[in-house]
Design a protein around this nucleic acid. Structure first.
Length: 787
RNA sequence: GCCCGGAUGGUGGAACUGGUAUACACGCAGCACUUAAAAUGCUGUGCCGAAAGGAUUGUGGGUUCGACUCCCGCUCCGGGCACCA
């Protein structure tokens, strides 16, 4: 007998898979396809962590299983390598991002191979490779040509530490998603992608096209898009002459609109247009506009505002009502102005009570009152639409904002645009793509709102592709989300030089069947890539509307103390350490065993041991069976245990319940401990174990005399006839409480079961001669006696 | 504040469409092996109780022959959104 030596056998099989090209996915295969995807990582200097492993193992189990089910399976991997850490590292050390990134990729790839991931490495992509970002730039230009990429100056989120603009989605709790610094507002020229043009399509997709997505994920995207249906209503006024347009979701309350409130931003615009506001008003506006997000949040409880002295006419009551400025009205949502209905809106109520403004009730118990004859007495929800039309026009607004798509940093895809004084904004012609990211000496962000690229004259100054006169390159780069917005498309045809992917390859592989990833990307990457795909679908560049048929999110892995793993807390568990101690099969299985895939779970060093012990026992059994020369046949019990296992594991993989699959393996081992097991049964067991612990399965399968990889074999089918038991245990309850149990042949009639149950000694004693009120018998299961 | 999700032994967690609560694992205790320890194997292990027995799935109610599971109220925890009109 030899010792279970994971280090040795894992290296052996990893090499075998590589040289045998076991996991190569064929384009144009005659088989049915399955496209399994796990979010590709940012290759950081610290290496990959336990969280990465969780998603990749889930994808790996699924992929290996599906291959055995006879599918052509694509399970690819790559690198989302543009981003700030590499650049910040360059600032600190002077090492070029391209160089540190390459080193990090090498390390991450080493880790993944050590985990025994069945990726098709021939399709590896890297977002920082010019051959890749050439197409990121090309796709950007498709947005530009369709009018969906535009340049504008406006107030954007600005991270003062990273010195770059941020998209709305990247601001979490008023802080920068990357570094946690409080975000400021800055007025800057930026590139935007018009994701708002796809707000409705993104919503419709959630409703109609993604039945296999978790409700939670869909809901989160839905809330982020934030559709509100209502009306825009004009209140006529002397100042401003054009009147004031407000957006409301409750046009039915217009008779209760006793004043208007406008945002400081809008009021400032009026001043710019010639309104002579009082000193008090100007001071308030100035103060409000310089407050950062945090101040505004902090002051949320106490409403502030100031009377403009202006009035407007309520189109329903025809009364002149005052106009106030207050920062609880947002400049960037709706029209920047609201009609305040203090009787039916909490915020307006609070404002009205603070400033002693009139309150008029117009709905009582859902019925219209105090409005005009036409509406009074009717139910509010019934007149909503009519009133929207009577006083304004129906209108829809979204919380979703256009995607700020430019970053003032170095390590990203250059935006392929040229600014020409004569021709304006010109796209770089396809033949000049990619616009290569030049090497620079200094990576420091300028902080002025320009990227470090702006300092390289030789790169910035170009000829206009249209008129050939002197022009300048766009110096902003794309955000880190650009490359990942379409990477799943590139995997299907990663080496194509003529197009981002060939049509037939797209048609064969798309959509992604199962997409594993973190919950934290729901309103970032996951939303962005749906947007790109919907757009490309409209452009007839991709064959499917939605890119990901099924989304399987996983929870994060916490440290043993229940805290998030972080360097500063010193509670990080490095997968490399676990591998060198226990091997990949143990680590993989333990990660799957930790708990439900979507749940947050805490790592436990001691828990790993349980899986290691299990694999030691598998090893011992495998070796024993392999070296057993006389041919003992497996017992009936062992056969039954095996087929129960096949059934359970198959169901669990299909439903991503990996944790219960692992426990059923352990249960199986306990059940067959003292049973004779033959080679055939052992081999079938190894096939079922293979997706989870592929190395040990391959090694033992070879010991049993098999020449081919387990991956080549077909997934075993559960023989249900082996599971039928000849006798069953029946539970006897009195008033729902278990009192006794007895055994009967399966399928014994209800009458007989009842008779037997009532004659049990414990039962007759408990009944003490009393007649049962009622007896409920469930065949093959239980008897409940009601007294 | 609003919207989701959750609460089961010392710990991580099982429990199919309502039908034996605590599978599997960790930990712990005892035993075997060992000069000893580790490793391994075996046995036991939710709680109270010596036992018979009793109460028990955050909490209070309800439906039911029967509730971890369904319904209503409350408490706590996690996640998302947050003055979005």
């Amino acid at each position: 007998m030899t010792k279970y030596n994971p280090k040795k056998i894992e290296a052996k099989w990893q090499k075998y898979w590589q040289t045998q090209k076991t996991f190569l996915a064929k384009n144009g295969s005659k088989k049915d396809k399955r496209y399994v995807l796990a979010e590709f990582p940012y290759p950081s200097g610290a290496g990959l962590h336990m969280g990465h492993l969780r998603g990749y193992t889930a994808g790996d189990v699924t992929s290996r299983y599906l291959r055995m089910q006879g599918y052509e399976v694509l399970y690819p991997m790559g690198w989302d390598a543009f981003g700030l850490p590499a650049e910040n590292y360059a600032i600190k050390t002077g090492v070029q991002p391209a160089i540190s990134t390459a080193a990090n990729i090498k390390n991450a790839k080493r880790q993944m191979q050590g985990w025994g991931m069945s990726f098709d490495w021939s399709r590896e992509v890297n977002t920082t490779d010019p051959e890749y970002y050439k197409w990121t730039q090309w796709l950007f230009l498709q947005f530009f040509k369709a009018g969906l990429a535009y340049e504008a100056t406006g107030l954007i989120n600005w991270c003062p530490k990273d010195k770059t603009g941020l998209a709305n989605e990247e601001v979490i709790d008023g802080k920068c998603d990357r570094c946690g610094t409080v975000v400021e507002k800055k007025n800057l020229r930026q590139w935007y992608l018009k994701i708002t043009a796809y707000a409705d399509k993104l919503l419709e997709g959630l409703k109609d096209d993604l039945p296999e997505w978790p409700e939670q994920v869909k809901l989160q995207q839905e809330n982020w898009i934030g559709k509100s249906t209502g009306a825009e209503i004009i209140f006529s006024a002397k100042i401003p002459k054009q009147g004031i347009t407000v957006f409301t979701t409750r046009p039915d309350t217009i008779f209760g609109a006793t004043f208007l409130v406008v945002s400081p931003e809008l009021a400032q615009k009026w001043i710019a247009e010639g309104w002579e506001a009082s000193k008090q008003v100007k001071t308030y506006i100035d103060r409000a506009l310089t407050k950062d997000e945090q101040d505004r949040t902090a002051e949320k409880k106490d409403k502030t505002g100031v009377d403009t002295g202006l009035t407007a006419e309520n189109p329903a009551t025809k009364k002149q009502i005052p106009i106030w400025v207050a920062d609880y009205v947002l400049g960037n949502y709706g029209t920047g102005a609201i009609m305040a209905v203090p009787a039916h809106d909490d915020r307006d109520a609070e404002f009205a009570s603070t400033f002693k403004l009139p309150v008029v009730e117009v709905i009582k118990d859902g019925v219209m009152v105090g409005s005009s004859q036409k509406y009074n007495g009717k139910r509010a929800e019934d007149v909503m639409e009519v009133m929207a039309k009577d006083f304004g026009k129906p209108k829809v607004h979204y919380k979703l904002r256009d995607w700020v798509f430019s970053r003032q940093r170095y390590w990203g895809e250059p935006i392929p645009i040229i600014h020409c004084e004569k021709c304006g904004i010109v796209a770089v012609p396809d033949k000049d793509l990619p616009v290569l990211l030049p090497k620079v000496k200094k990576y420091e962000p300028t902080g002025t709102g320009e990227s470090p690229l702006a300092a390289i004259d030789s790169w910035v100054n170009v000829k206009c592709p249209t008129c050939k006169s002197l022009a300048k390159r766009e110096t902003n780069t794309m955000p880190q989300w650009a490359g990942s917005s379409w990477y799943y498309l590139r995997y299907v045809d990663p080496k194509n030089k003529k197009e981002f992917a060939a049509k037939d390859a797209l048609k064969y592989w798309l959509p992604v069947d199962t997409y594993f990833g973190g919950m934290e990307h729901t309103t970032l990457h996951l939303l962005y890539s749906r947007f790109w795909n919907l757009f490309l679908y409209d452009q007839k560049l991709v064959p499917v509307k939605e890119p990901y048929k099924k989304r399987v999110p996983h929870g994060i892995i916490l440290a043993h103390d229940g805290e998030k793993m972080s360097k500063s807390k010193g509670n990080v568990v490095n997968p490399d350490d676990i591998i060198s101690k226990h091997g990949a099969d143990t680590l993989r299985m333990y990660e799957m065993f930790l708990g439900p895939h979507e749940a947050q779970v805490a790592w436990s060093d001691q828990g790993v041991i349980g899986v290691r012990r299990f694999l030691e026992r598998v090893w011992l059994m495998g070796e024993t069976v392999a070296k057993n020369n006389f041919s003992a046949k497996s017992s009936k019990n062992a056969e039954a245990a095996l087929h129960k296992l096949i059934k359970k594991v198959t169901e669990d993989i299909e439903n991503f319940r990996f944790n219960t699959a692992i426990s059923s393996f352990m249960q199986f081992m306990n059940e067959i401990k003292d049973e004779p097991v033959d080679k055939k049964l052992m081999q079938t067991f190894l096939q079922v174990l293979y997706p989870f612990a592929p190395h040990i399965s391959e090694e033992l399968s070879e010991l049993l005399g098999n020449k081919k990889s387990v991956q080549q074999s077909a997934w075993p089918k559960a023989d249900l006839s082996k599971l039928i038991e000849s006798s069953v245990e029946v539970v006897v309850q009195i008033n729902g409480k278990v009192r006794d149990k007895f055994s009967v042949p399966a399928e014994t009639s209800a009458k007989d079961i009842e008779k037997q149950a009532l004659s049990l000694e414990k039962i007759t004693v408990a009944l003490a001669g009393a007649k049962p009120k009622r007896v409920i018998v469930i065949k093959n299961k239980l008897v409940n006696i009601v007294i």
